[in-house]
Nucleic acid binder design. Structure first.
Lengths: 342, 342
DNA sequence: TTACAGATTGAGAGCGCTCCCAAGAATGTC
DNA sequence: GACATTCTTGGGAGCGCTCTCAATCTGTAA
């Protein structure tokens, strides 16, 4: 069968195309009887308006894009992204939006995908995961006039609408927690170089140490890149400097760090205490349950969708941002329980 | 500035809309000089054809959907799905397709999403992750005429185009491996009830045992549901029956099982040997490196895209399927190395 | 010179919808 | 009863593209 059109339904009921369109779009200006008849016809035939025609006429597609830049390489290793995606999907479903996924894996992808994203009226708006500060994608995206919400604080943050958590504060409270427990050689394993997330978390770490009167030692700052393996390596490189506690910028890296410590015959938290970041499901399941900073990952996604919808409907001046709360989840890896007993 | 149209470019170069359209679509019937001029104008203006108008006129959207049914609840816990998604995304990028993601989280979602998927001409085709056998979504999808490729063998497999691995053979080889190593009380932890994946893997397990002359003991078959926690529980419930080896239907469940064994003071592989399934990155990183069946996850995705494109272009009769190869990756958890030494 | 094939181009008719405008029906007001 | 007001409805003009068909323009052979 050929696809049904508004016109077909109209003919069937004996009204005009316009009236059927009104019913479909929930316009109030239709008499109750006619509305009922039309609705019945739509139900029986299973008619559904053609999306392309709708978009063309209304200049709205009801599709938003989620862009994960090249610099976000850990989409399929770090549970953070699937969870974020899930949050976004839920937000889309709730608002009758479709979600287009743009996973940029290399330069060619970027060149191919960009025009599809920015022009061409195929998307009403986009959500971008903020990656590295110097990611050229961000600039290309700003240049295109499409409404855009950044997930995570972008570098030039006053030009963008974004959703983020207060990474400085979160990292501060993680580090402060370790200080309060009496550790004195507190190291950190950072996220990948050049992202605001990483910068902010380092800042929070430094703030807490400074405030407590500690000297920040570069040898106790080890660079990871959000992967399990990088956590392993970073921990290994930290060991010669004898830290007694480590704040680690992601739970995935923390699990790598734990592995490194096990390989070296060290115990958590007796020999070295750890605090992670994210509170991924794994964090509560490792043998040594991870003390960590819980991010409202799903909420970041749904809040992002919400803001984007508002932008699409009401314009985006001036740029807005929402900073969501984090929470310190105390489990075993920080040694809090151990120390209490003493 | 208002969005540019074909007509604008045409006017600028002094040709007709049709000619510009020909250039944009790479039609051969354009004189080289004109083509060059038009291309130049397009380049300078940054013109990009409107997707909605294109879809409307051509009845093609160059968008495919990825549907993850409600019964696939582990999208954001099991790395399998992100990796699959990645494979699909790469396939899409390579073929200039956009990917729409439909994460069905509950019944209302399904009702809202279905019409958007099946009619409305917003998708050229869909990829569906096969979930439970009785998933009503599958039927609804078949009824809609949209080209469709199932990832994983669907229940009524002769009605569908699908991509799968030979789960029976893979599970057979995993179990056989344990048998060959001399284990005699080989248990299994299955995937979630009612999926073909689970059924097939059980079948392979049973086949191997039967072939070796073992009696299949129901008490040695424990039901999981692909989550870490379910692996933990399943392993715990298996312990009273004293298995000496376990074939586990996913690596994620295997990591739960390892945790259960650690909690019980048992050692892998000395006390109990394990073989997992999937070969997720984690498998090589656990303290006891996991012997497992490697699935070509990314390839399943890209092959799915390939088949779907073919279906869209050339119709889908008769249904086709591709069965990809798996590979047994021998690491430490099966005790092979231990046994060699003896 | 005429004819004809082949290449190149343009015009026109949609694709199925939205949205504006005006016509007509129904209701209210004095 | 005449007029204004509101509600309901239909028609038409696009949205920006594709695709068919016919027109024009070459070049070549008769």
């Amino acid at each position: 069968m050929a696809e049904l059109t508004l016109e077909d339904i109209a003919k069937q009921v004996g009204v005009s195309r316009s009236t059927v369109s009104r019913v479909v779009n929930g316009s109030p200006n239709v008499s109750p009887e006619v509305r009922l008849q039309v609705e019945e016809a739509i139900r029986i035939t299973g008619f559904h308006p053609n999306a392309a025609a709708r978009s063309l006429a209304s200049q709205r597609t009801r599709v938003i894009g989620l862009v994960l830049p090249r610099s976000v390489s850990s989409f399929f290793t770090d549970p953070f992204f699937p969870q974020l995606t899930q949050g976004i999907a839920v937000g889309c479903n709730a608002n009758d939006l479709s979600l287009s996924l743009f996973l940029v894996t290399n330069k060619e992808d970027e060149d191919k995908i960009m025009p599809r994203i920015s022009r061409s009226g195929m998307l009403d708006g986009i959500l971008v995961q903020s990656g590295r500060a110097d990611d050229p994608l961000m600039e290309r995206l700003t240049n295109s006039r499409i409404p855009c919400v950044v997930l995570g604080r972008p570098f030039n943050h006053d030009c963008f609408n974004y959703i983020d958590v207060d990474n400085v504060k979160a990292a501060y409270s993680a580090t402060k927690h370790l200080i309060d427990l009496g550790y004195t050689r507190i190291a950190t394993i950072t996220g990948s170089h050049g992202s605001t997330v990483t910068l902010d978390r380092i800042e929070g770490y430094v703030n807490a140490l400074t405030e407590a009167g500690f000297v920040v030692q570069p040898s106790l700052i080890s660079k990871g890149e959000f992967s399990e393996t990088s956590g392993y390596e970073a921990m290994k490189s930290l060991l010669p400097h004898k830290p007694d506690a480590v704040f680690i910028a992601s739970d995935l890296m923390a699990s790598g760090a734990i592995r490194a410590l096990q390989d070296s015959g060290l115990h958590v938290p007796e020999d070295i205490a750890l605090v992670g970041f994210d509170d991924i499901p794994l964090a509560a399941l490792t043998k040594i349950r991870l003390t960590t900073i819980r991010q409202p990952i799903t909420q970041i996604g749904s809040k992002g969708v919400e803001l984007l919808i508002d932008l699409i409907e009401n314009g985006s001046q001036p740029p807005r941002n929402f900073i969501l709360d984090t929470e310190l989840i105390v489990r075993d890896s920080c040694g809090a329980k151990l120390r209490q007993k003493k």
